[in-house]
């Protein structure tokens, strides 16, 4: 490896890392959190068998899952201004990622809710508890445990998908690499470098997932 290339790569690291921590990570955390809230609400709405709400949720999941994320980003960022709705790039990215990932995670949560033995809901009612309390204390904790691997998967996908925000001018880590490359023309080396940072971080998340799964694997050490 020649000296010029080495210097380019070393110089790029702090710039990439900076964008990683100031943009990629916040984008991931915000979008994942909002997405999870959407997912839980949508999954509960379906679980609770409220007819109108359930139909609405089905339509939401259908539309989101059957259109590309890239198209959704373009639609909101470049399309909505035509009807007078103008949003900044970063909020747009958070909005679209949350709504997008929310639909996928809602399906994971719905499956997990339905896997909780249903007699516990009735037992909760008979103990004098109300639906929200039963969900909070009994059903959701069990559903989260079941959904944990799928939700971890969604989180890892989300980290990588934030790179798509570059197409709507959000300068997250990947777009920063593109910008640097525009000056130095070292595509192979730079994009490898950025790929390695994603790889390292997602590997860390994978390890955390295994750790989390082990922690969650049993209530009170038995079962």
């Amino acid at each position: 490896m020649n000296e010029r290339l080495l210097k380019i790569l070393l110089d790029a690291i702090p710039q990439l890392i900076e964008k990683f921590f100031t943009m990629t990570i916040p984008l991931t955390i915000l979008s994942f959190s909002f997405g999870l809230v959407i997912a839980v609400l949508v999954a509960i709405a379906q679980y609770a068998k409220v007819k109108v709400l359930r139909e609405f949720c089905r339509v939401y999941i259908w539309i989101i899952r059957c259109t590309p994320l890239m198209v959704q980003l373009y639609l909101v960022f470049y399309g909505l201004p035509n009807v007078g709705i103008v949003l900044d790039a970063f909020p747009t990215a958070v909005l679209v990622f949350s709504i997008n990932e929310g639909a996928y995670m809602a399906e994971s949560m719905r499956g997990a809710l339905e896997a909780v033995p249903s007699g516990q809901l009735e037992a909760g009612y008979c103990a004098g508890m109300r639906f929200p309390a039963i969900m909070w204390h009994v059903i959701l904790p069990q559903a989260f445990r079941t959904a944990f691997p799928a939700l971890s998967n969604s989180l890892i996908s989300m980290v990588k998908d934030t790179s798509l925000a570059s197409v709507i001018t959000v300068t997250e880590m990947f777009r920063q690499a593109v910008i640097i490359n525009g000056r130095v023309y070292e595509s192979l080396a730079l994009y490898t470098e950025v790929a390695l940072i994603y790889l390292a971080f997602c590997s860390l998340l994978t390890v955390l997932q295994r750790f989390g799964e082990r922690k969650l694997s049993a209530y009170g050490g038995a079962r």
Partner: peptide, 28 residues
């Protein structure tokens, strides 16, 4: 009233103690 089911229907994520307290703390 209270109901005892054929297949118990205990809250699987709660300790024995909390299975009994939930009806009091949350229900009442």
């Amino acid at each position: 009233t209270a109901f005892v089911f054929q297949n118990y229907n205990l809250f699987l994520n709660q300790s024995v103690l909390h299975n009994v307290t939930l009806g009091l703390t949350s229900g009442r």
